[in-house]
Every structure is written in structure tokens, then in C-alpha cells.
Design a protein around this nucleic acid. Structure first.
Lengths: 220, 220
DNA sequence: ACAAAAGTGTTGTTACTACACCCATGG
DNA sequence: CCATGGGTGTAGTAACAACACTTTTGT
């Protein structure tokens, strides 16, 4: 048993993706009391010589297999009674991953793992509802002033997919022409020269991000 | 002695103000080894039933007497070796206070307390240099898209003081006319009807913030 | 031929930037 | 009367928003 006077330090990972034009987050279903059956963000107490960032990367890898996603510290949640079993201070991180090629892996720690639409979450354990709100607000803002959308898409993508990702998180429709113009003018995306194939309509040009690394840009 | 396998949780407070047109931060001089004589942000391990926000408010009150400043979580710093005496995870908060009416109070914990110009800091203890960089970047950004500048000024102020605060943090000159127009158009400041007096030049109209509470606005 | 999504230009409006002179007060 | 900072308007420019039809492919 841990010393009652010292808080334990944990990490929670809020993992976002876009599925079918709407933002989704990864939730796990808890096994243990007092939240058995409840859904929550995957997380846990950090190792003795582990940083919270390393823990977040570990969780991301364990649950999704993704290793190079955009990962950012969201903030620390430390209300005294947030965990009924004792004082736990948790550092939340959020990640953006492309939906394609992610195979969710359940572990024996959890009863289930699932993508949930970010706007229709089930009741969550701990203070994870507030965490979800904060994370969604952060991602929305971040998309507007940075290039982090690269982390939501595969290396090459039709422009409509990128636009759909923006529309999904921003919750509003954007104009195709203005959107393309802006992104090209900023040098954010560049054409690969390749095209989509096998879809029942005109093939789309594939683009890639000029930089797949965080940068500040006025997208909107 | 604390259990070596459990990190301790601390808070550090990065307290900003504007003095003579340049941004300053509050630093304390450490007494104890291994950083005796070094400057650092005031901070310390949190109480058993204390949140990091409460701790930050306590530190702010203790060092400056200020109780109602804008306070925001900056982020958590948790490199394994950031404290040579053992694992300490610290949650940094930053505050904005008006220079006028702040009487710095030293405590017996520290050898000295002083305002330092944010661009010319002495060597700092721990990872506080990185903390300072992050805090300054955050404040700069925040001033651009929010009304938090209210926390840097007294309740009534001449417009030139507000402009000086912006210029101090942004590091660039702004145009008087454009600045006033923008703030009025946004409804961010309103004239009080009163004027400055006793200065050796034309008296300035005093303004106040429409809201002295956090809000999002496109200032720049 | 039809369905489905891709691609492509122009125009009006708005917001931003740049800029210089006179005014009120204290000493 | 002089020094100091306060106060005020306009015009050019650049960015943004709104908008509809044609093209290419698969079935």
C-alpha cells in the first residue's frame, strides 16, 4: 500500500481520430472497483523512472500500436478527491492518430476498448468528463493555429479527407476552394503527383504535408 | 525521508508584471543546498490535501500579497533528474499581477526576493530556464487572443499603460490609433470618464476593462 | 447515361496597416 | 513658452468570404 500522505502520479491519454467525418476518442472499459464497467481514458500510475510523456507514449503504443503520433501535454488534474481510492495527481496528454491502420488492442487491464464519437460519450470515470472537454477544446484551437492535422492523416491523402478532418473538429462546413488556396499559400500541403484509384468517381489528387513536425501557422 | 519510489508533487509559480515598459518575473534566491544562492521561481511541495492551484495561490499571496490575479496552469515538468535530491514532479502555474501596489515579501525560506527583467534572467535552479521560456511564450500568445491583460493593470488606467504592457510582452511597437480602435471595437475597454492628474503634461483619459474575468477575444 | 465526388476563378466586402499634426497640462 | 505625452482621421492594400458549373471516373 502506498503512503497515504504522498500523492501518486499518473498519466491519462486522450487519443483522438476522425472516423466517417466525426471526431472520435478512444475509451477503455474499466474492470476494477470502484469504476467497474465504466468507460475512461486509458492511463495509470507512472513508473519510478518514467516521465508522464513516456507513459503516454507507452499507453498509445499499447492500445493502438501507433508510435509516431503528435502528442501534447493537456494539463494536470489534481482535485483532492478525484480518485476515491486515494490521492492521485494525473497528467493528461492527448494524441492525434489516423484512423486507417490502427488496430485497437485490448489488454487484460481493461474489459473493452472502443472508439467513441467525441460528442456522444458515455458516462466517464473519475474527472474524465472535464478532461474530455478540455482536450476537445485544445484540439479545436490547435488545428486553427498549427499544422498538427498531419497527425490525423496518413502520409498521402486526398484534400477532401483533410477538409473533412477540419470540419469534424470545428463542427462547421468549409469552402473547398478557399480551403485549398489557404493551405497551398501557407505551403502546408504539397501535391504528391499521385492520385486515388478504384473509387466510383473521379480520382482525387493526393497531397502530403510539407512538414510532419509541429509548427505554428494561421490555418483559419 | 520520503519513499524513494514515489515522486513528490510540487508547484512553482511564475509571476509576471510590467515595470517601466518591460516584462518582469518574480524570482527568489534559494538558501538550501544544492542550489544555495541560485535564483528560482518560488515553489514547493504541495500539502496532503492541497491542490496545485491552491498552492500557487498561496505562494502568490505569500510573496506579493495579491489575491485576485489571473492564474493559469502552465504545465507539468517531470524529467526524472530535474531535482538532484529525488524525484519531484512539479506543476507550474503562472500569474499576471499589476506592478503598482505589490509589496514583495521575503520569507525565511528564501535569502531574497526580486523582480527580474524577463529577458535578462540570472542562471536558474532546476529546469526553471525551460519553465521561464514556456511561460513567456504562453503569456505572449495569451495576450493576443484573450483579455487577460486586465490582470496586469489596476482597475483604472490610461490607455498608454495598457499599450505599454502589450508592447512589453510582444516586443514590438504598436500604433496608438489602431490599438485604441481595436480595443473599443471589441468592447474590451470602456472609458471611465475620469482622467489622470498631476503629471507634467496633458491628462489622459482613464479606461477600465469591461470584464475583469477571462474571455477569448482576437486582440491582435 | 447516370451518380458521385473532384476540380477550378472572380468579385465584393472587410479588416488591417501606415501615417502626422494639434492639444492640454506642469514647470 | 517649452517640454511631454495625449488625442484624433483617412486612404491604400491585403486578406477573407461567398458563390456554381464542368470534369472524370465507375457502374
Amino acid at each position: 500500500m502506498a503512503d497515504d500522505s504522498l500523492p501518486r502520479v499518473a498519466t491519462d491519454a486522450v487519443i483522438f481520430t476522425v472516423i466517417g467525418g466525426t471526431p472520435h476518442v478512444l475509451l477503455v472499459q474499466m474492470k476494477k472497483k470502484p469504476f467497474a464497467g465504466r468507460w475512461a481514458f486509458p492511463g495509470g500510475v507512472i513508473g519510478a523512472r518514467e516521465t508522464t510523456e513516456a507513459a503516454a507514449r507507452r499507453i498509445l503504443r499499447t492500445q493502438t500500436g501507433v508510435t509516431d503520433a503528435y502528442l501534447e501535454q493537456l494539463g494536470t488534474f489534481d482535485a483532492v478527491d478525484r480518485d476515491p481510492l486515494g490521492r492521485v495527481v494525473t497528467v493528461a496528454w492527448f494524441a492525434l492518430v489516423p484512423a486507417a491502420g490502427v488496430a485497437l488492442k485490448t489488454t487484460d487491464r481493461y474489459a473493452d476498448v472502443r472508439w467513441w464519437p467525441a460528442s456522444r460519450l458515455p458516462p466517464l470515470a473519475y474527472d474524465h468528463r472535464a478532461m474530455a472537454r478540455a482536450a476537445l477544446a485544445r484540439v479545436r484551437a490547435k488545428l486553427g493555429y498549427s499544422n498538427v492535422a498531419w497527425s490525423l492523416l496518413p502520409k498521402a491523402f486526398p484534400l477532401s479527407d483533410l477538409q473533412a478532418a477540419y470540419e469534424a473538429f470545428l463542427g462547421q462546413a468549409l469552402d473547398k476552394r478557399n480551403f485549398l488556396r489557404k493551405l497551398l499559400a501557407l505551403g502546408l500541403v504539397v501535391p504528391t503527383g499521385r492520385r486515388t484509384a478504384g473509387c466510383a468517381h473521379r480520382p482525387a489528387a493526393l497531397y502530403r504535408f510539407a512538414k510532419r513536425a509541429p509548427a505554428f501557422v494561421d490555418v483559419l
